[in-house]
Simulated scan of single mutants.
Amino acid sequence: MRRIDVATMAFPLLRSKLDFYSGKVPESLHQAQDDIQWADHVLLIYPLWLGDLPALTKGFLEQVLRPGFAFQSNDGGTSWRRQLGGRSIRVVVTMGLPALIYRWFYGAHSVRSLRRNILSFCGFGPIRTTLVGQVESLDDMRRIRWIMRLSEWGRAGR
């Protein structure tokens, strides 16, 4: 297992389309790309902030999942080849509100966008999601059960 702790990393945010397509990936993120390339299964955990990914997490994905690494443009940009196929991923989102409300009332829009517009575009699959609601009110026993469940899924690569 390898761990990437995005919150402790220093990297610039992308500011233009030119940076995304032609800029260099910061040196501080090369190891993260190596770790993703190495992995058969990825676990992405983030808290729901203002209904979406934290900005730093989104910035990390924008920097790391660049053309040439995560996908390749063919025929002058008219078609794309996914570069990260063969890797499963589980996305775990923690939140203060009940997960059922986020899924049914809000449509789990950040998870749907992440799955469709980023992860599947790069070739990840299968993509599984887990929503952990009301995390502030979980007692110790329920927290332990979640940690054990996530550990088991990680070992099984699902």
Rank of each mutant, 00 (worst) to 15 (best):
R66T: 11
L150A: 03
K24G: 12
V135H: 08
G107P: 06
V25G: 04
G157A: 03
S151P: 04
W38H: 13
R115S: 11
T78L: 12
R103W: 15
A108H: 04
W80M: 03
E62A: 04
R87W: 06
R158E: 15
R145K: 12
A39V: 07
Q63L: 05
W146C: 01
P47Y: 06
T78V: 08
R66K: 13
R3T: 08
S22Q: 14
Q33G: 05
G77I: 02
F20P: 06
T57S: 05
D40A: 09
R90T: 15
P98L: 08
F124D: 06
L13W: 07
M95K: 01
V132R: 10
G96V: 03
A99R: 05
P126Y: 05
L53N: 00
F60Q: 01
E27F: 10
L61N: 01
L13Y: 14
V91L: 11
G59C: 04
M1N: 05
E136A: 14
R15P: 03
A108K: 02
L43W: 01
D40G: 10
G154W: 05
R142N: 11
W146P: 00
Q83I: 04
Q37F: 12
L150S: 00
R3H: 07
S113M: 11
R82M: 02
Q134T: 13
D19K: 04
G157H: 04
T8V: 04
D35N: 09
V64N: 01
M1D: 08
G68L: 10
E27K: 13
L13R: 13
M141N: 10
T78A: 15
G59W: 00
A99I: 12
G51W: 00
M148G: 03
A108V: 03
Y21N: 08
E27S: 10
R142A: 14
G85C: 14
G154V: 00
